[in-house]
């Protein structure tokens, strides 16, 4: 099957800044892909190149098999992009805006019912005839999503769709995006909420300073490196002057009577740690175990790379 998105060795400079340093990435149809990376990593730049908003210096990019430069018409029919910035046209109402957007794709006459469905799905029906200026930030964000979907693209890219969105709306957006995915859309999501990526995405790419530093399924990422580690937090009733060597070697952080110990999932034994502490005269009052999550993997990988 044709990949939904194929990015080959893309370079992009902004003046002297090398924003993308030969990024390659293939996303299959039907995937839910998470594109992660710290601020300024180059995520939006890559998305803009996919959407034709920015020209790459070199490399090749296709969407549903259509080259984004040579076959830009076809590739843009296949792609819906929710931009990161809350941009809107202050002259129009929500419905006008959606009809106009559909019209650019030659679907003004046929879009009525679909627009109704989008408005309903995004809980915007009662705002349909409101001017964009009068909407709250979260509502504007939902209009942006509707705008990206108005021409029924197969591939949907959402650039931080949940930034600045309240808890309730966030989970309703998740539901909506998951529904799109179940309907067969390929989804690419960028976010700074790592739990969000961990919960939603099947495969994850981490980009840092213009380079793809990790690209794997979520499970594989979590199973590698720091993903194998967990943190044991032990609270003692008393203070131990000389910590046993076994504990010392794994100690990550100690404050007052709380010890944070990093343990390998397979090679270290929690029981051995506890025993060593007791032998040293420690009286354990509480223990907590924290599994590593995507956030730990992310921090570890982006720290190594810089």
């Amino acid at each position: 099957m044709l990949p939904a998105i194929e990015i080959e060795n893309v370079h992009k400079h902004f003046g002297s800044l090398h924003a993308l340093k030969g990024v390659s990435l293939t996303i299959e149809q039907g995937e839910f892909f998470g594109l992660l990376g710290p601020n300024g990593a180059g995520k939006s730049t890559l998305i803009n190149i996919l959407a034709g908003l920015t020209r790459m210096d070199s490399g090749a990019v296709t969407v549903m098999g259509h080259d984004v430069v040579k076959d830009y018409r076809q590739s843009r029919y296949s792609l819906g992009v929710v931009p990161q910035e809350l941009v809107f046209d202050p002259f129009f109402s929500v419905r006008e805006l959606l009809e106009i957007q559909a019209g650019y794709f030659g679907q003004r006459k046929t879009s009525g019912k679909w627009i109704d469905r989008l408005l309903e799905g995004l809980k915007l029906t009662d705002k349909a005839s409101s001017n964009m200026r009068s909407l709250s930030g979260g509502m504007k964000r939902r209009v942006l999503i509707a705008q990206a979907l108005v021409h029924k693209p197969q591939v949907v890219i959402l650039d931080e769709p949940t930034a600045g969105v309240d808890v309730e709306l966030r989970s309703s957006l998740w539901e909506f995006i998951q529904m799109l995915h179940q309907e067969g859309h390929t989804i690419v999501l960028t976010t700074h909420y790592l739990e969000e990526a961990e919960m939603l995405c099947d495969r994850i790419g981490i980009i840092n300073q213009g380079e793809m530093i990790a690209l794997d399924s979520k499970e594989a990422l979590l199973a590698k490196g720091v993903g194998q580690l967990r943190t044991l937090r032990i609270t003692l009733a008393n203070h131990i002057e000389a910590l046993p060597d076994l504990v010392k070697s794994k100690l990550q952080h100690a404050s007052a009577n709380v010890l944070e110990i990093r343990l390998d999932r397979h090679n270290d034994s929690i029981v051995a740690m506890m025993d060593a502490l007791r032998d040293a005269g420690g009286e354990v009052v509480d223990i907590a175990i924290e599994e590593s999550d995507l956030e730990d993997v992310f921090i570890e990988l982006t720290r190594q790379a810089t």
Binding site: A51, G52, L53, Y72, Q74, L79, P83, V87, P90, G106
Partner: peptide, 16 residues
């Protein structure tokens, strides 16, 4: 449209 940024909604489309 450039300053408000909404020009992208035209640039994203198949318009030549």
């Amino acid at each position: 449209s450039k300053i408000t940024g909404n020009i992208i909604f035209v640039l994203l489309t198949p318009l030549s």
